[in-house]
Simulated assay, not measured.
Amino acid sequence: MKAYNKTRLFGIVILTLLSFSCSSDLDFNQVNDLKLEPVFIANLSYFDVPAKDFVDNGMEKDISLDVQGFDFFSEKFFRDNLQRADFDFEITNTINRAYSLGLNFLDQSNKTVYTIRFDVPASTGTPVIIKKTEIFQNTTLDLLKTTKRMEFDLIMAPGPALSENSLGSFKLSSSATVYLLVE
Rank of each mutant, 00 (worst) to 15 (best):
K6H: 09
R8P: 01
L9I: 15
F10H: 14
F10L: 10
V13C: 05
I14P: 10
T16F: 06
S21E: 04
S23R: 13
D25L: 06
L26P: 06
D27A: 04
N29F: 02
Q30Y: 01
Q30L: 03
V31Q: 06
D33E: 12
D33Q: 11
L34H: 09
K35P: 02
K35C: 04
P38C: 03
F40Q: 01
A42H: 04
N43E: 02
S45R: 10
Y46V: 11
F47D: 08
D48Q: 13
A51E: 02
V55I: 00
D56H: 08
N57I: 13
M59D: 04
M59S: 12
K61Q: 10
S64V: 09
Q68K: 06
D71V: 12
F72M: 06
E75G: 13
E75F: 05
K76R: 15
F78L: 10
F78R: 12
R79C: 00
D80T: 12
N81W: 06
N81M: 07
L82N: 07
R84V: 15
D86Q: 09
F87L: 06
F89W: 00
F89S: 07
I91C: 00
T92P: 05
N93W: 01
T94V: 13
S100E: 06
S100T: 14
S100D: 08
S100Q: 14
G102R: 14
L106N: 12
Q108F: 03
N110T: 10
T112N: 05
T112I: 10
V113Q: 03
I116V: 15
I116A: 00
I116K: 09
R117F: 11
P121N: 08
T124I: 11
P127Y: 01
V128D: 08
I129Q: 09
I130H: 03
I130N: 07
T133R: 14
E134S: 03
I135N: 08
F136D: 02
F136L: 04
Q137T: 15
N138M: 07
T140A: 13
L141H: 05
L141P: 01
D142H: 11
D142G: 14
L144S: 00
L144D: 06
K145D: 02
T146M: 00
K148G: 03
R149D: 01
R149F: 00
M150P: 06
E151C: 15
E151Y: 11
L154C: 13
L154Q: 10
I155E: 09
M156G: 03
P160Q: 11
A161L: 02
N165A: 04
S166Y: 08
L167R: 12
L167H: 08
L167E: 13
F170K: 12
F170R: 12
K171F: 06
S173R: 15
S174G: 03
S175V: 10
T177A: 08
L180M: 13
L181M: 08
V182A: 01
